[in-house]
Amino acid sequence: MKNLNKIALILVIIGAINWGLIGILNFDLVATIFGEMSTLTRIIYSLVGISGLYLIYEKLMKK
């Protein structure tokens, strides 16, 4: 599970950086690299979201 936590954290950091770029510069790095709403872009967005939910779950379950 430790590796899964690291992967989830990396994906959430990527998502946070991307949202920061969107908010500050109106620049979507993921869409620029992989294409505007391409299948790969949608997979990355989905993985980032799932990773965020997973980390929330992990945090709540450790109490």
Rank of each mutant, 00 (worst) to 15 (best):
V30H: 01
I43K: 02
L4N: 13
I50A: 15
Y54I: 00
S46R: 09
L53A: 11
A8P: 11
V48N: 00
S46C: 05
V48L: 01
K63E: 10
V48H: 00
I14H: 03
G49S: 15
Y57E: 03
N18M: 00
I44A: 15
K6T: 07
L25P: 01
G52P: 06
I33T: 07
I10H: 04
G35I: 09
I22L: 04
K63A: 11
V12L: 13
Y57W: 14
I22R: 01
G52C: 13
L11R: 01
A31T: 11
I33S: 07
M37K: 10
T41P: 08
G23R: 10
K62W: 10
I22T: 02
G35E: 08
Y57H: 10
L55R: 02
I17N: 04
T41G: 03
T39R: 08
G23S: 14
F34I: 01
L40D: 03
L21P: 01
L9W: 04
Y45P: 05
L55E: 03
V12R: 10
I10W: 09
I56P: 01
I44M: 09
Y57S: 03
M1I: 07
N26K: 09
Y45N: 15
Y57M: 06
L60H: 14
G52M: 14
M1E: 10
L60M: 12
A16L: 13
I14P: 02
T39W: 09
K62I: 13
N3Y: 10
V12C: 11
E58N: 04
K2E: 10
N26S: 13
I7N: 14
G20S: 02
I14T: 13
K6V: 05
I22N: 07
W19Y: 14
Y54H: 04
I43Q: 09
A8F: 05
K59P: 00
V48D: 00
N5A: 13
E36Q: 12
L47V: 11
L47D: 05
M37I: 02
S51H: 01
A16D: 06
L4D: 13
I22C: 02
I44H: 02
D28G: 00
V12P: 06
I10E: 04
M37Q: 13
M37Y: 14
R42Y: 03
G20I: 00
L11I: 10
T32H: 14
I44G: 12
K62A: 11
I13T: 12
L53V: 15
I22Y: 00
L60N: 10
K2C: 03
Y54N: 00
E58T: 05
Y57L: 03
G23A: 15
L47G: 07
L9H: 00
M1H: 09
N18T: 00
T39Y: 09
I56D: 10
K63Y: 13
F27I: 06
I13R: 01
Y54K: 00
N26F: 06
N26Q: 12
N3C: 10
T32R: 08
I56C: 07
I7A: 12
I10G: 07
E58S: 07
K2R: 08
I33Y: 08
L53N: 04
R42V: 04
N26E: 08
I56N: 04
G35P: 05
K6S: 02
A8Q: 12
G23I: 12
G20T: 02
S46V: 15
L47K: 12
I22F: 01
K59R: 09
Y57T: 12
L47R: 08
N3W: 13
